[in-house]
Design a protein around this nucleic acid. Structure first.
Lengths: 202, 202
DNA sequence: TACCAAACGGAGGCCTGGCTCCGAATAAAC
DNA sequence: GTTTATTCGGAGCCAGGCCTCCGTTTGGTA
């Protein structure tokens, strides 16, 4: 995997090309973090002190650039997920992991957007990692249910819904997103714990 | 209020103008319901079989048109709110009301967008109605807390957050929005009921 | 019927944002 | 130092969407 496949291997980049590629990634990281995935591409080119043509030669499309940036963040989350599953207390592990993801959604608008993107990024590396993360969460959920910590009628979709909605809360909150989103997530997780689900369920 | 104020009173619309105004409103209702507030104005003009100029003479801005449509829906919701507050069981009243609002968010994309609009519609009539609705909900919440049905650390913002996030769930769900959003709302409301809030709250 | 204020309609202005094209500049090989 | 393939850069193209301008049409009235 890290061994260059001679069929795919490309000649090393020219020095200026490599330098520009790095500057583009650096600028994209910063600008997507601050402004989200809707930041204009031109802003990134300017931030990298590079022309549009240069940017588009390195990344053929805006989505490709977003994906390239998102991968690093998603990899961090997967790592956190791998650690979380080692927790003997499954509910604790899951809730800690959800907190890490929430924290990142607050810090990094680009991550929030990438995490929430239903469409786009199709077939990207980031999607694969996101699914791995989901896998870890689902496995924790199942264990928590088996241990009687969470009600039985929950599944992976309920976790996804929680993450998604928490992201939207952050989006709306501006300042004290931290407080509001944490509060929201906590209340919802209390709903997960309810021993006897509400009879109002349709 | 219904008596025409001579200072504000306008001469009655010419017959063609009145007809076109009605057609615009009708088309806008349909198209906003189906496509949401982001539907292009041109689509509405076409649907009403009217030129852009005509549309903009009747409604000076897209937001004004959205507001005009939203008012009717919001009024319905306020009415539902007035009925809900008569319920002796406050929690039941609130949850029924939330269900009505959710139902409307599923049926009408335009309503969902208007309800969720943080900015825009500034000073519009719709905003006033939305705040009335919030008032009813807050009063129900307080009563439910006094009756020991809901935990004490909740306030109107928690209701707003729930409505907002439910809307976002609907947005993402496509088909079976009904099922997913209902489920989500139910779980969250179970969190409202929790007697002893989670110790994981930061 | 003849007049004219009111209303009509849609082409076009303007802006934003993704993406492309191609002459100029330059790193690397000889 | 010359050559050449690679890379650079940014003006400009295109699409979508809000809104305006103004020549044309029409409803109401004398």
């Amino acid at each position: 995997m890290s061994t260059p496949d001679p069929a795919t291997a490309r000649p090393p980049l020219r020095r200026d090309a490599q330098r520009n590629r790095d500057r583009i990634l650096e600028a994209a990281r910063r600008i997507f973090r601050e402004q989200g995935a809707s930041a204009p591409v031109e802003e990134i080119a300017r931030g990298a002190e590079v022309g549009m043509g240069t940017l588009y030669r390195h990344f053929p499309t805006k989505d490709a650039l977003i994906d390239a940036i998102a991968v690093a963040r998603f990899a961090e989350m997967v790592e956190a997920g791998e650690e979380a599953v080692t927790n003997d207390n499954a509910a604790e592990g899951l809730e800690g992991l959800l907190r890490v993801v929430l924290e990142m959604q607050i810090i990094d608008r680009g991550f929030r957007d990438a995490l929430s993107a239903v469409t786009g990024l199709k077939g990207g590396e980031a999607i694969e990692l996101r699914d791995q993360l989901r896998g870890h969460m689902t496995s924790l959920l199942r264990r928590a249910q088996a241990a009687g910590q969470y009600r039985d009628d929950l599944n992976g979709d309920d976790i996804s819904a929680l993450i998604w909605s928490t992201g939207r809360i952050v989006e709306r909150a501006g300042d004290d997103a931290e407080r509001l989103a944490t509060r929201f997530q906590t209340v919802h997780l209390d709903g997960f714990r309810t021993a006897t689900p509400s009879t109002l369920t349709a």
